[in-house]
Measured scan of single mutants.
Amino acid sequence: MAMNGTITTWFKDKGFGFIKDENGDNRYFHVIKVANPDLIKKDAAVTFEPTTNNKGLSAYAVKVVPL
């Protein structure tokens, strides 16, 4: 089920960042999981599918909501 969130941290040079989800949890995401990576920036609103990996909470099918 899709969730909403906000990008809180973005490491462009490393290709990953973190999203604060609607429950207040931080989720890892990688640029290859983003549909529109050219719009990635700190504080951008996103929708995504929540999941977990071996390191904890993460996100896939991430879409940055255009302003």
Rank of each mutant, 00 (worst) to 15 (best):
F18I: 09
G5H: 00
K41F: 09
S58L: 08
D13C: 10
I40Y: 05
G15C: 07
V62D: 02
N26D: 11
A45T: 11
K42F: 06
W10P: 00
A2C: 12
K63V: 14
T52P: 04
F48W: 01
G56Y: 08
F11L: 06
L57Q: 06
M3T: 05
A61P: 03
P37N: 04
I40E: 00
T6D: 03
F16K: 02
A61M: 11
K33H: 15
N54C: 11
I40G: 01
F18K: 03
V65P: 03
I7Q: 00
G24W: 03
F11N: 08
K41E: 11
N36E: 06
I19C: 02
A59D: 02
A2L: 14
D21L: 03
T47F: 07
D21W: 02
F16H: 05
K14L: 10
F29I: 03
V46P: 00
K20R: 14
D25F: 09
D21P: 00
K41M: 11
L57V: 03
K42Q: 09
T8I: 14
S58G: 11
K20L: 14
P66Y: 10
E22P: 03
N54W: 12
F16N: 02
M1E: 10
N36D: 07
K63Q: 12
I32Q: 15
I19M: 04
M1C: 11
H30A: 08
S58E: 10
F48E: 01
E22D: 08
A2P: 14
P50N: 02
V34P: 03
W10T: 01
K33M: 15
E49Q: 15
T47P: 01
D43P: 02
G17A: 01
F18C: 06
G5Y: 03
R27L: 03
N36Y: 05
T9A: 15
F18N: 04
L39P: 03
A44S: 07
F29A: 00
D25E: 10
H30M: 06
V46E: 01
R27W: 10
A35L: 15
N23C: 11
G5P: 00
N54I: 12
P50Y: 04
V65L: 13
K63S: 09
V46T: 02
N4P: 05
N54S: 14
K42P: 08
A35W: 13
K33Q: 15
I7A: 00
V46G: 01
I32E: 15
D43T: 07
P37E: 04
A44V: 08
I32G: 15
W10K: 00
A35C: 14
T47A: 05
F16P: 02
A45F: 12
K42E: 08
K12R: 09
A44K: 04
K14E: 07
A61S: 12
A44T: 05
G24R: 04
V64I: 10
N54P: 12
I40A: 05
T52M: 11
V64R: 01
I32N: 15
M1N: 12
T9V: 15
N36C: 07
V65G: 07
K41A: 13
G24I: 01
L39W: 10
Y28C: 06
D43G: 15
F11D: 07
G17M: 01
F48Y: 02
T9N: 11
Y60D: 14
V62C: 03
N4F: 12
V31S: 07
A61D: 14
T8M: 10
I40W: 04
G15P: 01
D43W: 15
Y60H: 14
A35I: 15
T51H: 14
A59S: 06
E49G: 06
F48R: 00
L57A: 06
L67T: 13
T6W: 13
D13H: 12
G17P: 00
E49W: 15
N36A: 04
N23V: 07
A2K: 14
P37H: 05
M3I: 08
N54D: 12
T51A: 14
A59E: 01
A44I: 07
M1K: 15
Y28W: 11
F29M: 03
F48D: 02
L67I: 12
P50D: 02
N26P: 05
D21F: 02
A2H: 13
R27C: 02
L67N: 14
N54K: 14
T51Y: 14
M3C: 06
A45K: 14
K12P: 15
T9G: 10
P66I: 13
T6C: 09
N53M: 08
P37K: 07
G24T: 03
V34H: 03
G17F: 01
F18A: 03
Y28S: 05
K14T: 04
K42D: 04
I7W: 01
F29N: 00
A45N: 12
N36H: 06
D13G: 10
S58I: 08
A59R: 00
P66R: 11
P50L: 04
K33R: 14
A35F: 13
T51D: 10
N53K: 06
V65W: 12
A59W: 02
F16E: 04
A44N: 04
F48L: 03
S58D: 04
T52S: 13
T6F: 13
I40T: 03
D38N: 11
V64W: 02
K12I: 08
K42Y: 07
N53H: 09
A35H: 11
K33C: 14
K41I: 08
K42R: 12
E22S: 10
R27E: 00
G24Y: 04
F18G: 02
K55V: 09
T47G: 03
V34T: 06
D25I: 06
A45D: 08
L67M: 13
L39Q: 12
K14W: 11
G5T: 00
Y28N: 03
K33S: 15
P50F: 04
F29G: 00
T8P: 01
A35G: 08
K33T: 15
N26C: 13
R27N: 01
A59C: 12
K55F: 14
L39G: 06
T47S: 07
F29H: 00
P50E: 03
G24M: 04
S58T: 11
E22N: 07
I7F: 01
K63T: 14
F48C: 02
D25T: 05
P50M: 04
N36V: 05
Y28T: 04
V64S: 02
K42A: 08
G15Q: 08
G17R: 00
F18W: 10
T47Q: 10
F18Q: 03
G15D: 05
T6M: 09
N26M: 15
W10Q: 01
K41Q: 11
W10Y: 10
L57G: 04
K14C: 07
K12S: 10
V64H: 02
N4M: 13
A45P: 10
K55I: 11
A35E: 14
G17T: 02
A61N: 14
K14N: 05
W10L: 03
D21A: 04
G24D: 05
K20F: 11
G5N: 02
K55Y: 15
T9I: 14
V64G: 02
G17C: 02
W10E: 01
D21T: 03
F11K: 05
F11W: 08
T52L: 10
G56R: 12
A35R: 12
D13V: 09
T9Q: 14
I40M: 06
N54E: 13
N26Q: 13
A2G: 10
L39R: 09
T9F: 15
D43Y: 14
